[in-house]
């Protein structure tokens, strides 16, 4: 069936099978490979993207459920001039990654976290990212990165060209 979705600010219409998962749609139909598929069971959060302002695990959403929605992936975070989003910058500066596999999901979940709580404590960051697993257990610098990103103000909780992330 036909589905129209706005992906990273660009509206597109594609013919998809109803059973196509949003994660597969983004990777294979749109060619956006930043969104990783980790556990494929709604546990690890590697496939987290923002749909209509809310972080979701794209392995557990059908592409057809996102019809009419605004979807933002990691590729959509940086500005048109290539300037990194405050959360991307902070992950880079604080080295909030080890192997990098969980990073796209961590970054997208962090944007959602900072939208709901612009100045979280360490504990609030850890609880707010409970849906994202780092297989290297590199949580310490991830928490530092999110707290550092919070210093950038409200921009850290926003996705470009779309409505504010709600929570």
């Amino acid at each position: 069936m036909q589905v129209s979705i706005t992906v990273n600010g660009e509206q597109r219409t594609d013919e998809v099978e109803p059973r196509l998962l949003l994660a597969h749609y983004l990777r294979e139909v749109c060619g956006l490979k930043a969104t990783n598929i980790g556990c494929d069971t709604t546990s690890c959060g590697a496939c987290t993207v923002v749909v209509d302002g809310l972080s979701v695990k794209s392995c557990t959403v059908l592409a057809v459920q996102a019809a009419g929605a605004q979807v933002t992936t990691l590729e959509g975070l940086a500005g048109a001039d290539g300037e990194l989003h405050p959360v991307q910058k902070a992950f880079r500066e604080e080295h909030g990654l080890q192997c990098g596999f969980c990073t796209p999901g961590m970054v997208m979940a962090s944007v959602g976290l900072l939208a709901a709580n612009p100045d979280p404590t360490d504990r609030e960051v850890r609880e707010g990212l409970e849906g994202n697993l780092c297989r290297c257990t590199g949580y310490h610098n991830i928490v530092r990165a999110v707290r550092s990103a919070a210093q950038a103000g409200p921009a850290a909780g926003r996705v470009p060209g779309a409505q504010e992330v709600q929570a």
Binding site: T42, G45, T48, K57, A116, G131, A167
Partner: peptide, 9 residues
């Protein structure tokens, strides 16, 4: 329930 992403859906 679950985690933030699950609670969003």
């Amino acid at each position: 329930v679950g985690d933030p992403q699950v609670r969003h859906r």
